[in-house]
Design a protein around this nucleic acid. Structure first.
Length: 485
DNA sequence: CATGCCGGGTC
DNA sequence: GACCCGGCATG
């Protein structure tokens, strides 16, 4: 599976670009990607529920408008759910587009002045012909963001769906690209593939292009507009990462500093030790979860997860300091309520409702959709359940039906949740490392032992003298298959 | 203590 | 995979 981004340009003053309207929980707006939004002149965002291509229209005065068409096509490729390549490829011959895509994919809701300057008029191909309105537009956007704006410029806005950092430099050069970038970045930006059919991505050299632009742009940026305003609570459902400017710098530049062992230790660290970073409320922790298919890696630092992705999934040299930021696409931030998690763990008995959900068998890897739903919810409980459901059940809920002595028996016992045994750890990977960590008692807990049945077994019925009449299981000192309970 | 059977070992 | 058995949990 391969996601494609198509960049188009209109020749009539309206720029038609394609934005990836995925959202990335914790990084950008929680805006359903299927919901088109029309950004009116006053900065308000109007949901326009419709199917098909998503148009983002920036209505300027005089009828001038900039439309952004969000279109996402999913072609069944080679099983690689890579986001982007095409967008980047498309931009190869056009550094502007490339840069734009880079920004968009960069998931920052704030415009990067450096990029803007270096890419004049290119952002999302917006063609806004009335420069005089730029300042006004800028103000409107700021107003929409709840920024400090002259009262006269304030207007009633419904900006709750598009949180944009408030700490923009008010004196900065707010041109139309910046405006467009602000909105568009808020609307799209997420590299996270939430599409259920998305499959693991594959690194491509093309991604380097925008990254380079991005890096260069960043280095030229001095306004620090890349930071998120962690205090911005305007979007309750968006656990926006409280990345500071420095953190953002590190975000790009420092993903090489950690030891390789960090990956191994961090999950443990996250579970039982003091949280390293970003402890928001009392017990809320921001973790970074690898979104690579079948990979549930959760680390406590962005650098760690980036390293993990870069080395494990992208197959890049772990020693290399070079990071093109592509890793960023493949992990997401999640909030973890440690209190709830602790509670969940403490009650993580075999019959705990937390793990013994309606379906007795838990699919080891959650689908991308399921995962996305989990992490997109700001509620701490959901995060907890998400973690638990992803880490614990895969091992806890194995159904034991594979014993050879059960073969000749007509009916195969279905072992209940409380009866399951611990499978061989070797068959599980990263997920179960975490599981082993967070449920250390599972293996040693005798509570999982099957309760003795009430019915008399072969031994009792036939006695030792007629042992040959016992069922096979009884002869092998296994659970009797003849006289089941 | 008898029983049931898990977990692991041997072939 | 078939078979065996030490040892633990349970009643």
């Amino acid at each position: 599976m391969e996601s494609k981004y198509i960049f188009e340009k209109s020749s009539v003053g309206t720029g038609v670009g394609v934005a990836d309207f995925h959202y990335r929980t914790g990084r950008s707006v929680l805006l359903d990607s299927r919901v088109p939004v029309v950004v009116e002149k006053n900065g308000s965002v109007m949901p326009a529920y419709a199917q098909g291509p998503v148009f983002y229209k920036f209505v300027m005065d005089g009828g001038s408008a900039a439309e952004v068409k969000g279109e996402r096509t999913w072609s069944s490729g080679k099983g690689n759910g890579r986001i982007l390549p095409d967008m980047e490829k498309a931009g190869l011959g056009d550094q502007k587009d490339t840069g734009s895509s880079g920004i968009l994919k960069r998931t920052s809701p704030t415009p990067c002045p450096g990029v803007t300057r270096s890419l004049p008029g290119s952002f999302m191909n917006l063609d806004i012909r009335n420069p005089g309105k730029q300042a006004e537009l800028a103000s409107n956007f700021r107003a929409a963001q709840g920024q400090s704006v002259p009262q006269a410029e304030r207007q009633p806005l419904s900006s709750s769906h598009i949180p944009v950092p408030r700490n923009r430099n008010p004196s900065g050069h707010a041109d139309k690209e910046v405006m467009a970038a602000t909105v568009l970045t808020s609307l799209s930006t997420s590299p996270l593939v939430l599409h259920p059919s998305a499959a693991p991505p594959v690194p491509e050299p093309a991604s380097k292009t925008w990254k380079e632009v991005l890096s260069a742009s960043y280095s030229s940026s001095t306004s620090g507009n890349w930071s998120w305003d962690a205090s911005d609570q305007s979007v309750p459902s968006t656990p926006s990462p409280p990345l500071s400017n420095d953190a953002n710098k590190n975000f790009l530049l420092s993903s090489q500093g950690d030891d390789v062992s960090e990956d191994v230790t961090e999950s443990t660290h996250f579970m039982f030790e003091d949280p390293i970073p970003r402890k928001r409320k009392n017990s809320m922790k921001v973790m970074f979860k690898c979104l690579w298919k079948n990979c549930e890696k959760v680390l406590s630092t962005s650098s760690g997860i980036q390293r993990h992705i870069r080395t494990v999934h992208l197959g890049r040299n772990s020693d290399s300091d070079y990071s093109d930021g592509e890793e960023d696409f493949y992990y997401s931030e999640i909030e973890v309520n440690m209190d709830s998690l602790t509670e969940g763990l403490s009650s993580l008995t075999p019959t705990s409702p937390t793990t013994a959900g309606p379906p007795p068998v838990f699919p080891p890897p959650l689908s991308d959709v399921a995962r996305s739903e989990h992490i997109s919810v700001n509620g701490s409980q959901s995060h907890t359940s998400s973690l638990l459901s992803q880490s614990a059940p895969s091992t806890l809920c194995h159904i034991r039906t594979d014993h050879a002595y059960q073969g000749p028996v007509a009916h195969v016992r279905t072992v209940s949740i409380g009866e399951k045994r611990q499978p061989a750890a070797s068959t599980h990977t990263t997920v179960n490392k975490n599981h082993a960590v967070i449920t250390p008692a599972a293996k040693s807990t005798p509570g999982t032992r099957k309760p003795r049945g009430e019915a008399k077994k072969c031994r009792k019925v036939y006695g030792m003298e007629k042992r040959d009449m016992w069922c096979t299981a009884c002869r092998w000192k296994k659970a009797c298959q003849r006289f089941t309970d």
